[in-house]
């Protein structure tokens, strides 16, 4: 079974980069273009891990985490926040909402895989 990733990012560039890296590393890749679509897709995709951007239209990354961790979904799936915000308060806020970890853009392939490994145990 491939590890299923649901990536939520409004930047096509980032989505393509993630797709290239993750598919090459043997993940099953799904993506959504904003937070709302990501939350809507969650049930269908049933991912093993969610990667979400913070700054997005419709629903931002914090909103995604809050909804997924909220009562409607009660998701225990790891959620990695993908963001250029390296500010500590940003990480703290994401974690307060229930984020599992973060990936700082620009990411390199190794760091991305390493982060996924730490939260999903996916064998590379």
């Amino acid at each position: 079974m491939k590890t299923k990733v649901l990536a939520i990012d409004d930047s096509r560039t980032i989505r393509n980069l993630l797709a290239a890296t993750l598919e090459e590393a043997g993940f099953e890749y799904h993506c959504a273009v904003d937070g709302r679509e990501g939350v809507d897709m969650y049930t269908d995709v049933d991912p093993d891990v969610v990667i979400t951007d913070i700054n997005m239209p419709n629903l931002d990354g914090f909103g995604v985490i809050e909804e997924l961790r909220g009562d409607d979904f009660a998701s225990k799936v790891p959620i990695l926040v993908l963001t250029t915000e390296s500010a500590p308060e940003m990480k703290a806020r994401a974690r307060g909402a229930g984020a599992t970890g973060w990936i700082t853009k620009p990411f390199d392939d190794d760091s991305l895989i390493f982060a996924l490994k730490r939260v999903t145990g996916a064998a590379m």
Binding site: D40, D46, D72, S75
Partner: peptide
């Protein structure tokens, strides 16, 4: 510790319909 395996949302919950008006 609480079950850490991915918890599926209930299967019989209809997936939220994609709203036409949004986005």
């Amino acid at each position: 510790k609480p079950a850490a395996a991915p918890v599926k949302a209930e299967e019989n919950t209809p997936p939220p319909a994609k709203s036409e008006s949004r986005g």
